[in-house]
Amino acid sequence: MKSPLLSLPGAVPAEGVDEGVAAHYGDLFREQRTLADGTGFVDLSHRGVVAVSGADRLSWLHLLLTQHVSDLPAGRATEALILSANGHIEHALYLVDDGETVWMHTEPGTQDALIAYLESMKFFYRVDVTDRTGEIAVVHLPAGSIAEVPEGVVVRETPHGRDLFLPRAGLEAFAADTGGHGPAVGLLAYEALRVEHQRPRLGFETDHRTIPHELGWIGSAVHLQKGCYRGQETVARVHNLGKPPRRLVFLHLDGSEVHLPPHGTELRIADEGPDGRKIGFVTTSVRHYELGPIALALVKRNVPPGARLLADTTAAAQEVVVEP
């Protein structure tokens, strides 16, 4: 779904899965500073929006999600996963309950598959699942923003900022009211700060066999003391008896390189040279206004935390995100 904010001056469209919103508005580093200073807003209107209403919505979702939501207070934000029977991550949900409806946003284009799964699990529960992507746009305000939220808009507030579930018809009017929130900021700036804060993203830090432990989603998106849900056996077994086969790391990349290693670039231990064994891959790489080129990556659990790595031919020093 193409955002009307692509008509703003300087807007350069994003590509790939993020197609439909602006990658930037002409000055990537300035836009990063704007977000870091707690001003501006990010157009995330390409993300899927799903609403679940009905008297049984929380108790029903509690049976399906990795997070404890049966007693979720109105207005409290949380995040959750849906796993396969083998414990692999299928969906990442960012949700809040407004007292009558659970609102969640998901990765672009995944809402149809999510709704199909939820519908298949309704049985006798009093719930209604609806796709609201065509009516509701997600807008992000950074942490520290003092912008006023339009009346009646559902807000999902986290330590990293506020996600607004804004009527799509009001998106242009919201952007025009720059006195309250500052200028529009592109998705590349949002992604740079996401990498800086070491937050994983479905489809970027995940592949078909990723389990929550590998990305540090235990605790933030997975509750270890709740009842059964699909994939729980794997979560419990790895947590109590084993260790995940891979772990998320944060990389400082060689700043002399002109190009960033793209998603999927193979990682090797530098001492073994470019022909050494593959030990992982780059998941997201960005240029940060203060840190320079940085990235997130998945590596094998037994890779020494102090080992210098090669992303193709780009040297990389790692920081631990998930303990080995």
Rank of each mutant, 00 (worst) to 15 (best):
T284Y: 02
L8T: 06
E151M: 13
L309M: 07
V303E: 06
E319K: 15
T130V: 07
G99W: 14
A270C: 04
M1C: 04
F29W: 10
Q232A: 11
L35W: 09
L188E: 10
P305D: 08
T133F: 07
P245D: 10
L309S: 08
K243Q: 15
D163I: 00
E151S: 15
K278R: 15
H239R: 11
L267M: 06
A307H: 06
A51M: 06
F29S: 12
V21S: 03
F165W: 06
G292W: 06
A176F: 15
H263I: 01
V282S: 04
S70F: 00
L188C: 02
V153A: 09
G161V: 00
A80Q: 03
G186K: 02
F250H: 14
D207C: 13
W217K: 10
L251T: 07
Y94I: 01
Q67N: 11
S45L: 03
V222T: 14
R76L: 00
G87D: 02
M1V: 05
H181M: 04
P261Q: 09
A143N: 01
H197L: 02
E157V: 12
E107S: 09
H197K: 03
A315E: 14
R156P: 09
V17F: 10
W60N: 02
A307G: 09
A189T: 03
Y125D: 10
I82C: 10
A176I: 11
V153C: 09
L8V: 00
A85V: 03
G144E: 01
A85E: 08
T265R: 11
Q225F: 13
L267R: 08
L251E: 12
A307D: 06
C228W: 12
D128E: 14
G99E: 14
E107Y: 06
G306E: 13
H140V: 02
P245K: 14
A116Y: 12
D275L: 13
H197I: 00
L241H: 11
V282D: 04
R246N: 11
L118H: 12
G40H: 07
D254Y: 07
K2S: 11
G144S: 02
P4Y: 08
A143L: 00
N86C: 00
L58N: 03
I294T: 08
H62G: 02
V258H: 11
S45P: 06
E157I: 08
L193Y: 00
H62I: 02
R201E: 13
L81T: 12
V52E: 13
